[in-house]
Amino acid sequence: MLIRIDLQSDVPLYLQLRNELVLAIAAGQLLPGQKLPSVRQLAGQLGVNAMTVQKSYNLLKAQGFVVTDRKRGTVVSSTPPSGQACCAQLQDDLALLAAQAGIGGLSQREFLQLCAQCYRSITQKPAGEGGDTPCSS
């Protein structure tokens, strides 16, 4: 699994890491029950502060993407987030993306086509097969 973070981005590192891990889970690169690297290990690999990785793991745990226990460490959740809380978060995220698309001049149809393309590129990949971005088709 390749995790890409951009040290020059305005997006905080912990959110970039969180997003990369969510994409890896969705693409089947990280499977339910699979152990994630320890905070120290991942921080060392990425060259970031351990607190940055810990903040990402805490956010993923709060959102239901991972679970942590003292014996196994942090693993991908076997029961992914769903229901009302998941839909509320998605609606908030999509509202922001729709606003950005509108400001950028995309029509509703173009925005929906882009959403569909991104969704297909994530959900139709065989497990273990990755891409550079979720919209790389």
Rank of each mutant, 00 (worst) to 15 (best):
Q34N: 05
G105Y: 13
S121T: 08
G130I: 03
S38G: 12
Q29R: 13
K55N: 02
L36N: 01
M1T: 13
Q113C: 12
Q63K: 00
D6S: 09
L23T: 03
G47T: 10
G33R: 07
F111C: 11
V66G: 00
V48S: 02
C115E: 05
L90I: 04
C87N: 07
T79R: 09
G33N: 10
L2G: 06
A26E: 06
S77C: 02
Q117G: 12
G102A: 12
Q34K: 07
Q91A: 14
T68V: 06
C118K: 06
G44I: 07
A95D: 09
A26T: 08
N19Q: 10
L42Q: 15
T123Y: 10
Q29I: 09
R4V: 11
A24M: 04
Q29E: 12
N19C: 06
G73P: 02
A98T: 14
P12C: 02
D6F: 11
M51L: 06
A50Y: 10
D69I: 03
G83M: 07
Y57M: 02
L96A: 10
V67D: 03
L30G: 01
R120T: 08
G64L: 00
Q41A: 10
C135A: 14
Q108H: 15
T68F: 09
S38A: 15
G64D: 01
D6R: 10
A98N: 07
I5P: 03
G28K: 09
I122Y: 04
F111H: 10
R70L: 11
G102R: 14
E129G: 07
I103R: 11
L114E: 15
F111D: 05
P32Y: 03
C86M: 13
T79V: 15
A27K: 11
L114H: 13
C87F: 03
K61D: 11
Q41M: 05
L15H: 11
D69M: 06
Y14P: 06
Q16A: 02
R40Y: 08
A88R: 04
L13W: 06
Q45E: 13
Q113D: 15
A88P: 03
Q108R: 15
A95E: 08
I3Y: 02
Q8A: 14
G128M: 10
G105D: 11
L112Y: 12
L90H: 08
L42D: 14
L90R: 13
L96Q: 08
I103G: 04
Q34L: 03
